[in-house]
Design a protein around this nucleic acid. Structure first.
Length: 470
DNA sequence: CGACGGGACGC
DNA sequence: CGACGGGACGC
């Protein structure tokens, strides 16, 4: 609702962030004088001169609330150090600390001039500068890259010379950049999540062992055990890779690390330090080991040299029916990974000729359902008219596959997968496409993944979420 | 049955 | 040194 620009509950004083000024002035400076000098910079929502409760004399401290941070910042930059009346001292002007923060430390320009943005992975520093220079002089622009590969993480920093420039960038740049003020650089060198080369292969998670059991009660009959996987009598997370030709530990590592979840990869050497042509590879879950054996046993690497991959006993119990059941479900998961995961796609290419590719390469969508032709997506900025809730079994389809699938009914805005769960949401800017999608796709199998497609419940209400800087 | 967002920098 | 009032929205 447009509750209009009047000052309501005190929480408004902190929104948007950094839109309130803290002034230190001579005690003779009144609200009127302040208003006169600060009005040119923007829409003033509130001026408050702090006074002694009893004497009503100004304490020489005032607050000026603007409707936008850029207005407050510009006013600060222009007015700091100026005298507002004959014979009065120059005023100090700072961005006020949020009322909720409790801190009275001055907010420094350092904290107000650097923004943090999400950018296309293809962006160079120059692209970044070109994009944001319209908001002001840029001191520098840097892109966060993987330290090893140099590949962009799709994130960048832009340092402006003045707070008002950063504020304008945040307020006015395309929303897809998700520009916010950067936290001052100090701590927080958080963990790198890229433990395997491909960022999209998160289906299996870090603990497929337990997550497998989560859907163990669901008997998805569409999958049968693959190849000779079950005929060998032991199945473990630990593999022995044997090669007649010389291979290095690094080569084997590179190959087997295509599959997520590797614990280690260790070349076996004899007492004289010579390679015996054997490498032990262990994964942190059975599924990855099953998949690795299935795909890489007999694989020619280097070309002409056929690798042999066998399970080796790691002492874990694998005879219980529950374990076997879990294995089959893991196999189902792996099959859908072969179809849908980038790892699978890569392996398929390289091992073609040994293992017959289980799926044609033509389309990324394999299903018996007769699908309408592809349609364009609509802007995700618009109003969501209908939202679908989709449950996947055994694991979610990749977002690009889902877009390919759900765009075909028209007006698809966005596909969102809930991280770590087998569910997702599909947003449409019209009702009909959403309903058509349910009619055609509910209960259907696509790329080996069964989907339940239904209308989503409305999002759970929550008193206003903490918002970003703006 | 299942359920609601995305981000961090070499010193 | 220089930091937080006034007013009152339906449930």
């Amino acid at each position: 609702m447009t509750m209009d620009e009047s000052n309501r509950a005190s929480s408004y004083l902190d929104e948007p962030a950094n839109s309130r000024l803290f002034l230190v002035t001579s005690k003779s400076i009144t609200e009127e004088i302040i208003r006169e000098h600060f009005t040119p910079f923007g829409e003033i929502q509130d001026i408050w001169v702090v006074k002694d409760k009893h004497t009503k004399e100004s304490k020489g401290v005032s607050f000026v609330k603007f409707s936008k941070s850029s207005q407050a910042c510009t006013a600060m930059e222009e007015m700091h150090g100026r005298s507002l009346a004959e014979g009065t001292k120059p005023i100090k002007v700072f961005i006020a600390q949020a009322r909720s923060s409790g801190s009275h430390r001055d907010v420094e320009d350092e904290e107000l001039t650097r923004i943090f943005v999400m950018i296309p992975k293809t962006f160079t520093e120059e692209d970044l500068k070109d994009t944001f220079k319209v908001y002001g002089d840029i001191e520098y622009a840097i892109i966060i890259r993987n330290k090893n590969t140099g590949e962009s993480k799709g994130l960048g920093y832009v340092r402006f010379h003045k707070p008002s420039q950063a504020a304008k960038a945040i307020e006015n740049c395309d929303k897809t950049y998700r520009a916010i003020l950067a936290e001052p650089r100090t701590k927080n060198s958080s963990a790198d999540n890229d433990y395997f080369s491909n960022p999209r292969s998160e289906h299996s998670g870090n603990d497929p062992g337990s997550s497998s059991y989560a859907f163990a009660h669901e008997s998805s009959s569409s999958f049968a055990p693959v190849g000779d996987t079950w005929s060998s009598d032991i199945i473990t997370r630990c593999l022995m890779v044997s090669s007649r030709a010389a291979v290095t530990q690094e080569q084997i590592y590179g190959l087997f690390d295509l599959i997520p979840g590797m614990d280690f990869c260790e070349m076996q050497i004899d007492q004289y330090g010579f390679s015996k042509g054997q490498v032990v590879v262990r994964y942190n879950n059975l599924g990855s080991a099953v998949y690795a054996k299935e795909k890489l046993n007999g694989f020619e690497y280097p070309p002409g040299n056929r690798l042999s991959v066998t399970y080796i006993d790691d002492g874990e119990d694998r005879t219980s029916p529950v374990g076997k059941m879990a294995m089959q479900l893991v196999a189902a998961q792996m099959m859908s990974m072969v179809w849908n995961g980038p790892c699978g796609a890569q392996l398929m290419k390289t091992s073609a000729g040994y293992t017959a590719p289980p799926v044609a390469q033509k389309s990324r969508v394999q299903t018996d359902v007769a699908l309408p032709p592809l349609k364009k997506l609509v802007s995700s900025d618009g109003v969501v008219k209908e939202r679908l809730f989709v449950i996947f079994n055994p694991s979610p389809l990749p977002v690009d596959v889902l877009e390919d699938l759900f765009c075909r009914f028209g007006s698809l805005m966005e596909v969102y997968l809930v991280p770590g769960r087998n569910v997702g949401y599909i947003k449409y800017s019209d009702r009909k496409p959403a309903h058509d999608a349910i009619a055609l796709l509910h209960g259907k199998v696509v790329n080996g993944v069964k989907m339940k497609v239904m209308l989503a419940d409305p999002p759970k209400e929550e008193s206003h979420k903490r918002q970003r800087t703006y």
